[in-house]
Every structure is written in C-alpha cells, then in structure tokens.
Nucleic acid binder design. Structure first.
Length: 1076
RNA sequence: ACCCGAGUGGUGGAAUUGGUAGACACGCAGGACUUAAAAUCCUGUGGCUAGUAAUAGCUGUACGGGUUCAACUCCCGUCUCGGGUACCA
C-alpha cells in the first residue's frame, strides 16, 4: 500500500497539521497539577523576506525539547509571537506608502504559514504581537512602573518613588545622593535637607525626582542619525555609522527618555552567576557592563596663574607642602598626644564622632587630627572643614581659640564650633549645620587657584609614575584652570574637537591630539608638580573624565608623553625599556618613595589605604555601561504614556491605557529631532498647557517582557496574573541568536529585576538557561564575466582573463557546476551569454557568506519541505552539527536523513507497504538496543546535543534491521522517542500502531538499566600505550586474573619477548596497558 | 590591540571524569538487481610501507615543546580562523 515516498510524505504532513489544529492539541492550560516546563524561542521580527533555513534552526531545537518534555509528563508552555514594532516597516511605509500595520500583518501571515509547514507545537492561542494595543497597553504600564520607582542603593533594589519623597520630607537626600554625581540643584548644591526639600517649588521637586526615577527624562548625549531622523542606541551604531543603512551618526544633546540601567550594573553582573548561559555569552555581557575596580584620587592644583610666577609662597604656621596634615616634625611630636586624646573623648565629642564616622554625611571625617601645630577635634580634610567642640569657656581659652582659628583660616580651613550642650541635646541640628557647611563650596574651590582634579585609576600603585594629568576636553574644570597664556591654544583645540564627527574619531582612534592648559597638579605623595593637559583620548563620560598619566605603564599615556615630549618617570625598573609602556602587575616598584621594593599588586592596597587615611581618595568601582536611551523619533513604536505639564512629564492614569498610536499616513520625521508624531498637532496638544511626547519607545521595549505575557496573554486587568506568573515562573530554556546577547538580554533582565523588586515577580532572572544557536551561513556561488563582454569563464580559467565576479543564484548551480541553460533564463541580460568551459563544464567559484537575498544564496525551507518533507528538514537541520556552532548550509547530506526515516517506516511495513508487526517478546539483544537508544536520546536532549541523537537513531535502526526486528514492543517506544524530532511520521506510525490519541499524549518509555548491564568487556590490550590486541574478559574478574590472562596471551608474549614488564595498568571496564 | 571560542579524513561531524581517534552521515570506489538509467541493497574507504591475500608495521586530531603507564582531551609557547569590545584610564 503506502511507501514513505515523497507523495505519501506530503499527504501525511498535511493530514496531521490539519488534525493538530482542529483538535487544538497544542493548547496549554495554566490549571494543572503537572510540573511545568517553559521552552521559549526569541520571537522574530516579521520581515518581508520571510523565513530562510537559518531561522528554524533554533525553533526546531526548542520544539524537540517541548515535545520531549511533554511525553515525559510535563505541562509545557511553548509559545510564539512577533516582535512587530520596528524601523523596517516604517521605512517600507515611507518608500511604498503602505501603512506599517498593514505590511506587518501581511508579513506575519507569511511567517505563520511557513512556520506551520514545519510542524511546530506552538500554542497559537497565546500568540503576542508587540504592536497590538492590548499588548502594548502593558508595555506602557511597565514603563510607568519604572517611571514611578527609583533605585535604593543601600538596599540594592528598586522602590516606589513615594518612599523617596517620604525620605526627602524627613531627612533630605543625605543618605541618597543624586545618582548622577554631576547634577546640582539650581542653587549649586548637591545635597538638601528636609527643610530645603519643602521649600522647593513643584517643578523643581519634579526635576529632583527625575534624577532618581528608573525611567527618566534628561538631556543626554545621543547618537543622532540625520539620514534616519532618529536617535540610535549604542548597539545600533557600528563604527560610527548606523547599523541599518550605514548612515553617518553624530553626537548631539537631546532631551530623551532613558532607563537607569547603570544602577542595576552590579546585580546584572552578579545575576550571571546564577544562570546557565554559555561562558562566552556571559563574557560578552560582563564586558559590556565593564566593571573595573580602582580608586578615585583628588589632586590639588598649584595656585594660579603658574608655579613659576607663584615663587615662594608659603602659609603661615603650616608649610604649604603639607597643607593637608602637618610637617613631619610636628606630626611626630603631636601624634602621640592625638592618640591619647582619641582614647579619652568627652561625651559630646564621642557622640558627634559616632554620628559623623563612616562617611555618614558623604564625607570622611577624622578626629583628634594634627593640622599644622594643632590638634583639632574633628576635621573633614577634603572639605577643609574643622569642627571644634567647646566645654565651659574661660577667657584665656577664648583668646587661644581665636588665634588658632585665624591660623587655620589662613591655611584654607574653616572652623565651626559647637558647645557640649548643643551636641548632647540637639544633635540633629548640629548635623544639619555641618551638612550645610559641607555643601557650601569652600573658598579654595572657587577658582582661587586651589581647585581639585579628581581622577579615576585602576592602578593607584603607579601613583609615583604620574608625569601629567589629562582632562576630557568637555571637563568642567578646563574653563577654570586654563592660564591666560594657554587660553588661545586651548580654545583652538576645543573647536577642533567639536568639529570632529564620530566617524572621524572612529577612523583615527589612535591619532594623538591634545593641548596643555598651563595649569599644574600636585602629587600628594611627593609634591611633584605635573602639567595638566586636555585630550580627546580621555572620555568625559567615563570615570571622572580625568586621568593621571603614567606613561611607563600605560600605552596611551606613553604615546601621549612621547608625542608631546613629556619626560617619563620609570617606576618599574627593567620592565620598562624606554620604547613602549608595560602594563605589568608583576614589577617591583622603584622611584616610588614608600612603595619602593613592593610588588605592584599589594602596593595597590597600600596606596588606597593611605589615600583614605589622608582623606584624598577612596576605593571606587566604575562601569562602562551607560544608561539606556529609550526614545526614538519614530512612528512605529509604543507612545510614551505621559502628559507634559509645565514641561515636566506626569504619568497617565492606568485606566486610560493604552495610549494608542494615532493613525496617520505621515511617517517622515518632522525635523528638529522630533518624531513623526510631532506632525499630529491635534494628538500632541491635549490642553492649553498639556502635551504628549512625540517620541516612541525602541523595539527593545516590547521584547523586554513578552515572555511574561505568554503566561496569561488575554488578561485585561493585569500584565499577567500572579498565579500564572508563579506557576510558569522562569523560562526553563531560551533559544536564540547571539546577536541579541547584549541589548535585548540586558533589558529583559532589567525589567524582570525591576518588576521583582516592586513585588510583581518572585524571580529576578528571566531565563534559567540560554542557548545561542549558531548562524546558518549561505554558500554563495560566483560566475566570472570577462570584462566588457557577455562572456563567462569557468573558475579554473579565470586567471587568464580580466574578470568580475558576480553572485549567481545558488538554485541554478548543482554542486559547483552551473546549469548554463538556466543561467541564460535567469536574467534577460544573460540570455545571449557565452561560456568558456573547462572539461565541458562551467565550474563556479564559492564563498561562505551570510544568507542574504542580495547574494542569491538564500535557501527557503519551503523548497526543502517540497522535496523531502518537514520531518526530514527538521532532522537534517539538527544533524548538521552542534546547535551552537555556526555552519554553512549544504544539502549534500540530506539524503542520509531521508533514508533513515524511510528505513524507520519500512521497519514496520512489508515490501508491499502493508503494516507488518510482530507481537512476540523481544529478545535480550533487541531490548538492549531499545534501551540504549532511549537512554542516549534522553541524555542528548538534556545536553542540547541533537546531532548525536539523530546519529543514535540511525545506529538503532541499523542494528534493528540487522536483527530483522519488527516487534511492536520495540517499535512503539521508539516511535514515541522519535516524535519530538519527526512529529508527522511519528503520528502516522502511532496511528498505524492502533492508537487513536495523538502521540503527544503518549509516555516516553522508561529506561531500564537492567537491559544495559554487560557481563563482559572487550578489553583493548595496549603495550607501551599502543593498542595491540583485544581480549574479552568478565567485568567482575579480579585484576590479578586479568593480568595473568593478558600476560599469557600470544601477542603480549611476542612483544615482551619473555621479559617481565615494568608495570601493568588495569582499569576495569576500560583498558589494560603493559609497560615494558 | 584586548577578551573569549575553535582548529580532527575528500566533506559535515563523533569521542563520559585523560583510557580502543575518526561513531553516524555525505562523497568516492567496487559489486548485486536492471535491456539501461534512476531508486534500492551489499562491501570497502585517514595516510604511508610490505604482502596475491588474510594481515603486519609505521604514522596520524593546526604547529613546537612538556606532564603521564596513557593526551584530540591537561600545561607552556607559536600560527590560523570565528565572535565580542574598541582610546573605558
């Protein structure tokens, strides 16, 4: 009757696809006692080109896992949807006038029909589309949750903004400084008290809160692409041009929405230790987050205008060189006294000390510290603020104090006094006063020549190798410190920097430019004065925007020093050769004062401790990652659910969501950096002083949480119910391309963590396991046209002519041989083509490239299905090699897979095509084959090693064929095992085996080890590590007996030539090695 | 430049914690069936040397060293390819 022929395959596959759909066999319930399993694919962007054979690779793997878990008794969530907002549909609309909603819907239809043909077990009733208002209602809702929260650094989690407001009302922001250290209130302050907070007007309060919100609006440097009329995310810019289209990109300041992902840097980093992603994937994310540990160091500047002009300026009472503490002589005589004092504090002193210690004010205080010739009660060296606590006051004492205060003032210290009663009874007031003093800029910071440069360095150990300082050109201090002599040069340099586009900079990354400011900084450890430069190679956005230049240890600093002829100090002895920097950690330091003779690694701690002690530096962790730009000047995306009043955004009411995208046929940007929505004035202006945002969210928004919506896709009151979220929990396995390794994954992880912090989720990593399937690359073919003629020369002869290589459609090439007739018909231009053949054939050139329409190397899965059926396609894609490996598409092996399926079919059919099964008991040997296979398939699926499981099936069939086995008891479990891989043929065979229910509801046969136990083993006998013989021996044979048998054997005798071997190694069940 | 990953027959690729390198498949060669072809089935297939042959020996997992009774697997160095980052101090 029926053979597994191409006609029959078509019938079978259509039959089951219809039946599956009709019977809704893939519908998954949330209401079950079964254990859950969640298998997820990265949902596709439905492009106009449809699927090529590369797309289904990951989908097939997930489908196998999903089906396998189902026959193993799990309730499996295996959904699919579409990442349907995005730029291509909008570009298409601009070019062809088709509304994105229409072209997107059409593309989805194509995708769906292609997916259906491959036989995936998706529960389509749970489909999501990010462009559907019922979906993006919740994208907007989650955005508002982010807008309504802030990151509490001390708890390392997000909290509601109202909690922050309550804190501000109680104590100001002293315990929660501005996340952006550069932000200042209109007054210039960076801290405020509760009283300050209450005195701020509504708008300023909103601006302050905006500094904390997880979704916030700010003027940020953005990548502006004029040609696309939009801002691009960092990962959408490659080598200074746009990822899509390759248009130039420039930096521009715009008021944009951002997500404060940097606050989560540490958690995003730590979370990687809890998830099962490939190491390379974790590395990519770690690099992107870019954590580096080091120190912040504050350098004092020499007084203006220049050290030369300064001459011999010295303070009174305190030597200028030792402005921070004291001179050595006084220090040694005072320190004992200070130490004694610290042991016996007065009650008031101690109380205030306890309140100020550990930088509770944000600044480091020390007590009983020597300054000049005095010991002061408390001092913040950084802020040059002295606090004195007075007991009962005598006249004498008063006079002394005044003198003392005067001397301290002359050296730049401010002194504030409290009496014991103040401290003991009104500590809060005292603290408020201290804080207020701390936030008032001290005179030295106002440009009198005492500015401070703060640098970030990962190598504090190289502090004695500092030969210069470099500021980013945009650094605030540049204006203040530039001397009049250097002003002109600096101005010129700044305008040069401004004139350079991103692409220029990218192209000339290694070009050395810079300019001296005329100012000098003082190395706090040896009082050396080093010049301060500005240069492009220091980035304003990273660290403090300033570095200390250590040319002997840093390549960039070295090039800079050489270029500008700055003398280089060598602190690493022989490790530095004078020609190039050596960033070693291993050197023993020289020319480094108190660090001499210490290795660099331990020296780091020594330096940081000293910096902290001196109050001129602290340990610091920096991250490369920046906050995520979240505004796009586009139409086809989610509108921001906010209303601007008095230029500040306010969240829309939840019940008014979704804020639907207005219909329009104007998709071009309105200019001025505003999106197309700005054209719709009626929509933008909602009241006399109320406006909407004209931007939309990036594609990442919808993709950042879609895996949650699948759990409860039709919920109209919540993004998903608590029960559904608790039940389905984390995605057990997530499969997709590594191109989403950075952005998508980080945003999805961020949203999950934020929702977790706000109490919506009980997990804070979305994906338990992540697999990145490799790319399937195209195998392109070329023909070689003789220049100026319509003549084509075969690949082997092309060197004899002047030729141009042209891509040719891979579908008209068989192997490497071109079908010349098909070629003539392919394009009208080639109708009269002539060919120069070799050996009567036209041989094409080939290259492995990305699969792309323009290379004519795209293989459509429909074509493979047409020829071999979906089951063969599925198994062949898996058989191609390890899932995670990239590989070129090549159909040459597909016959092997097809033959296997036919053999499987034939196993239970006779030559006439009738079902022929035996109901007799299987033999031991047959059972062994069965259970070995079942075991291996299970293991391989667990390891995502699908290529080896396909091999295992082939081995199994070869072995059963050799045994001429057609027993039901063997075949039935194998059909279930095969069903995840080749579901159509498995269903058909399952039906032929007499079952009326789908094979999806069958149970994977239990592996029984008893059938696999071997009693003997064929030992390889090696002599000096080389296998010379085999011997079958019982597995439970004692080692001595094995040795006896081995030594007695003929071959071993031959090799030992009667001598006693040095050693005989016996590994039971593995090998015997005789060492001569 | 830096950080990962990989390199195994003509090809895609196998090889538990170091324990028979090349499973499985393609391709190729030979054979069976056939008037013939296709399809199917069977046999062989890393390289070299010797032998009519069964077989025996040598060699072999990018290259050069090392550790070990034993290395595709571990360590050091070199080369090539792929991915990521791109002046991140």
């Amino acid at each position: 009757m029926a053979d597994y022929s191409k006609e029959e395959i078509k019938k079978i596959e259509e039959k089951w696809q219809q039946k599956w759909r009709k019977d809704e066999v893939y519908k998954v319930s949330n209401d079950t006692t079964k254990p859950k399993y969640y298998a997820l694919d990265m949902f596709p962007y439905p492009s106009g080109a449809g699927l090529h054979v590369g797309h289904p690779l990951g989908y097939i793997a997930t489908d196998i896992v999903a089906r396998f878990k189902r026959v193993k008794g799990f309730n499996v969530l295996h959904p699919m949807g579409y990442d349907a907002f995005g730029l291509p549909a909008e570009q298409y609309a601009i070019e062809h006038g088709v509304h994105p909603a229409i072209s997107t819907a059409k593309n989805i239809e194509t995708f769906r029909s292609q997916l259906d043909r491959i036989g995936f077990c998706y529960d389509w009733s749970r489909e999501v589309r990010t462009c559907d208002p019922n979906y993006y209602k919740w994208t907007q809702w989650i955005f508002l949750q982010l807008f309504d929260s802030w990151f509490n650094r001390s708890l390392q989690k997000a909290e509601r903004i109202e909690q922050l407001v309550a804190t501000f009302e109680k104590e100001g922001n002293s315990s929660h400084p501005f996340p952006n250290a550069k932000y200042q209130l209109p007054s210039g302050a960076t801290e405020f008290t509760a009283t300050d907070w209450k005195s701020l007007d509504e708008k300023t309060q909103q601006e302050v809160l905006m500094q904390y919100r997880l979704a916030y609006l700010a003027y940020t440097d953005v990548n502006w692409c004029e040609a696309l009329g939009t801002v691009l995310a960092n990962d959408e810019v490659i080598n200074g041009v746009s990822y899509r289209g390759g248009h130039p990109v420039v930096k521009r300041q715009m008021r944009q929405w951002s997500l404060r992902i940097t606050e989560y840097a540490e958690r995003l980093l730590k979370g990687l230790n809890e998830v099962d992603y490939s190491e390379s994937m974790k590395d990519i994310q770690r690099n992107w987050i870019g954590r580096s540990e080091g120190a912040k160091i504050h350098f004092n500047l020499t007084p203006n205008p220049s050290p030369q002009e300064r001459g011999a300026i010295s303070g009174k009472g305190i030597a200028q060189d030792h402005v921070f503490t004291t001179d050595e002589k006084s220090w040694s005589s005072l320190k004992e006294y200070a130490r004694e004092n610290r042991k016996n504090p007065t009650e008031a002193e101690d109380k205030l000390w306890q309140a100020l210690r550990n930088k509770s004010t944000g600044y480091k205080f020390r007590r009983q510290h020597a300054i000049g010739q005095f010991i002061v009660d408390l001092v913040c060296i950084n802020k040059k603020l002295v606090i004195e606590i007075d007991g009962s006051i005598h006249e004498n004492q008063k006079r002394e104090d005044q003198e003392r205060e005067q001397l301290l003032n002359e050296d730049g210290f401010r002194v504030i006094r409290f009496n014991n009663e103040d401290v003991l009874n009104n500590l809060n007031e005292v603290l408020a006063k201290i804080k207020a003093e701390l936030t008032t800029p001290s005179p030295v910071e106002r440009g009198t020549g005492g500015e401070v440069i703060t640098v970030f360095t990962t190598r504090p150990d190289t502090i004695f190798g500092v030969d210069f300082m470099v500021l980013a050109p945009e650094h605030d201090l540049v204006k203040k410190i530039t001397t009049s002599e250097q002003q002109h040069e600096v101005d010129q340099y700044l305008s040069y920097v401004e004139s350079r586009s991103e692409i220029d900079r990218m192209a000339e990354v290694k070009k050395i430019t810079g300019c001296f400011t005329g100012a000098y900084a003082i190395n706090p450890f040896n009082q050396r004065e080093v010049p301060i430069w500005i240069s492009e190679y220091v980035l304003a956005g990273y660290g403090t925007g300033a570095i200390m230049g250590v040319p002997c240890g840093d390549d960039r600093d070295h090039r800079f020093a050489k270029h500008f002829k700055i003398p280089i100090t060598n602190i690493i002895g022989e490790h530095y050769n004078g020609e190039e920097a050596n960033p070693t950690y291993e050197a023993i330091l020289t020319n480094s004062d108190f660090l001499n003779g210490i290795k660099m690694k331990p020296a780091m701690k020594v330096v940081i401790d000293k910096l902290v002690e001196m109050g001129i530096g602290e340990r610091q962790v920096n991250y490369k990652m920046r906050d995520a730009g979240w505004s796009r000047q586009r139409y086809w995306g989610e509108p921001f659910p906010v209303v601007f009043k008095d230029d500040m955004p306010y969240a829309m009411n939840e019940k008014d969501l979704p804020l639907e995208l207005p219909d329009t046929n104007q998709f071009k940007s309105s200019g001025n950096g505003e999106g197309p929505l700005a054209n719709l004035q009626d929509w933008i202006n909602i009241g006399p002083n109320e406006k909407r945002d004209s931007n939309t969210m990036p594609t990442h928004a919808g993709a950042a949480w879609y895996f949650l919506r699948y759990m409860d896709p039709h919920n109209e009151t919540e993004f998903a119910s608590k029960e559904a979220l608790d039940y389905w929990n984390q995605v057990d396995v997530y499969v997709g391309g590594s191109e989403h390794a950075v952005a998508h994954l980080l945003y999805a992880r961020l949203w999950t963590k934020a929702l977790h912090d706000l109490g919506y989720l009980n997990f804070d990593e979305p994906f338990k396991k992540l697999i990145n399937q490799g790319k399937i690359t195209g195998d392109s073919r070329f023909v070689y046209r003789v220049r100026g003629k319509n003549q084509f020369v075969s690949s082997g002869l092309k060197d004899q002519y002047e030729t141009d290589a042209l891509h040719v459609d891979v579908n008209i090439v068989e192997g490497l041989e071109l079908d010349t007739e098909a070629f003539k018909k392919w394009k009208p231009d080639f109708a009269n083509a002539e060919f120069i053949l070799e050996d009567g054939k036209y041989i094409c050139g080939s290259a492995i490239e990305k699969m792309s329409k323009s290379y004519f190397n795209v293989i459509n899965p429909d074509r493979i299905i047409e020829n071999y059926g979906a089951d063969t396609l599925r198994m062949y894609e898996m058989f191609l090699g390890p899932l995670e490996q990239s590989k070129p598409w090549n159909t040459s092996g597909i016959d092997g897979v097809y033959k296997f399926l036919r053999k499987f079919w034939n196993m239970m059919h006779d030559s006439e095509g009738n079902v022929k099964l035996s109901d007799t008991e299987p033999t031991k040997e047959e059972l062994k084959v069965l259970h070995k296979t079942l075991k291996k398939i299970e293991q391989d699926i667990d390891n995502f090693s699908f290529n080896t499981s396909v091999s295992e099936f082939m081995i199994c069939i070869n072995e059963l064929n050799a045994l001429k086995c057609n027993k039901r008891a063997v075949i039935e479990p194998l059909v279930v095992a095969l069903s995840p891989f080749a579901p159509h043929v498995a269903e058909e065979l399952w039906e032929k085996l007499g079952h009326s229910d789908t094979v999806l509801n069958a149970t994977y046969h239990k592996v029984e080890e008893k059938f696999l136990v071997e009693s003997s083993f064929e030992y390889p006998i090696s002599i000096n590590g080389k296998v010379r013989a085999k011997m079958n021996m019982a597995l439970d044979m004692p080692k001595e007996d094995i040795q006896k048998q081995v030594m007695a054997s003929e071959i071993v005798q031959k090799w030992t030539e009667g001598k006693t071997p040095k050693k005989v190694i016996i590994v039971p069940g593995k090998i015997v090695n005789v060492v001569l």
